[in-house]
Amino acid sequence: MSPAFSPPRFPRRATALSARGLTFATLLLLGGCGLFKKGDQKPPPLAPPETMYNNGIDALRTNRYLLASAEFEALQQNYPYSGYVANAQLMEGYAYYLQDKYPEAVQQLDRFLLLHPTSNDAAYAFYLRALCYYEQIAEVQRDQQGTVEALDALQEVVSRFPQTAYARDAQLKIDLCRDHLAGKEMLVGRFYEQQNNYEAALNRYQRVVQDFQTTNHVPEALQRLVEVYLALGLRDEAKRAGSVLGYNYPGSKWYGYAYADLRSAHLVDAHTQAPTGPRPGVVSRALNLIF
């Protein structure tokens, strides 16, 4: 899952760019042991912080993400009080993100936010941190703790920076996370229903209707509630769930299934909403009627 829009421009290159080129950290990465013969010469002097920073930015621009993270880390280790450290921390987090090293990216971004909570780049740091969790969301069949963490991180972006482009994109991803969590509940509920564990299935379907009302899974959850209530002999509850489904989604295929079940159970009367052709669903005013 990639971000919906590109991150901000890279911070401007340092103006005092050294003509010497690569830093000692870069040389160690590129050259290995053969660069220097023992006793022949001393390693070159450590490059100044602006050179390390510029090398890291150049590496990012040319998709050499491993080299970029090494440059930014070397800068922080060797010049902890430099004015380039804050940007280096943020860019190192971004470099880890581009390498799909999400735990390392989160750790680096947390360090940046702890040390620079009022930075102008804090909104982007929170957003990038949320993306790290979002990218790790597992398939519906697997544990969804990662989805919960992504949802929390995205909501933090919206609450802290509501008027930003980051918040707008985070809100879209929040909706996707909620749909994902609702899908997990439906998967488990269907499993329980197939095992005739109707009480457990009922809890899952009810949670979708109560907690994930804006997701696409609600019509099916209501139809499954009709099935389960009928299986449990709870005819009035089945009819109420069917009424809510018919009121909100009269053109849904799920209401067609529920209507057929209710008719087979002789629960259809003159007041029962008949299925209609496709039409946009209306905002529910009656979801609480089935609880």
Rank of each mutant, 00 (worst) to 15 (best):
Y229E: 09
D236Y: 05
A260Q: 15
N216D: 09
V268D: 00
V228P: 06
V228W: 11
V244A: 02
N248W: 13
D211N: 09
T214V: 12
V218S: 06
D261E: 15
G183V: 05
R207Q: 10
E237N: 11
G183K: 02
V268N: 01
Q206L: 14
L187D: 09
P250N: 07
A260K: 13
L222W: 10
E227P: 03
A260M: 12
A200I: 09
P219S: 06
S252T: 08
L262M: 13
L202A: 02
V188T: 06
Y259I: 01
Q223P: 03
L225W: 02
Y259K: 01
G256K: 12
W254Q: 14
Y255H: 03
Q206Y: 02
V209M: 05
Y229W: 10
Y255R: 13
V268H: 09
L245Y: 01
V226K: 03
P250M: 00
Y247L: 08
Q195Y: 02
E199Y: 04
Y259D: 02
A221I: 07
L187F: 05
Y247V: 04
M186R: 05
G246W: 02
T215K: 07
A201I: 01
L234F: 07
L222S: 04
R207I: 02
Y205N: 06
L267I: 05
L187R: 03
K253E: 10
V209I: 12
R263A: 03
Y192V: 09
H217T: 09
R190H: 06
R263F: 00
R240A: 13
N196T: 11
G256P: 07
D236G: 09
H266W: 04
L267M: 04
A241F: 00
L230K: 06
Y229R: 02
A182G: 14
L202D: 06
S264T: 14
W254D: 14
Y259S: 07
E237Q: 15
V244N: 03
D211E: 05
Y247P: 00
L234E: 07
L234Q: 15
E227C: 14
V188L: 05
V228Q: 00
N216P: 08
Q213E: 13
S252I: 05
Q206M: 02
V209S: 07
G189M: 10
V228N: 06
R207K: 15
F212P: 08
R204V: 00
A258P: 08
K253G: 09
D236W: 13
G256A: 10
D236F: 01
G189D: 10
G233L: 05
R240T: 13
W254P: 09
R207F: 07
K239F: 10
D261V: 01
Y255G: 04
L225G: 05
Q195W: 07
A260D: 15
P219A: 14
V218W: 06
D236V: 11
L202Y: 04
H217K: 11
Q223T: 08
L232H: 04
A182H: 02
Y249G: 07
E193T: 07
Q194N: 13
F191S: 07
L225M: 12
Y247C: 13
R235E: 12
K184E: 13
T215R: 11
L232F: 00
G256T: 12
T215L: 01
T215E: 00
A238Y: 06
R207L: 03
Y192S: 05
K239G: 14
E237F: 12
L202W: 05
Y198R: 04
N216V: 03
A201N: 09
D211G: 01
L222P: 01
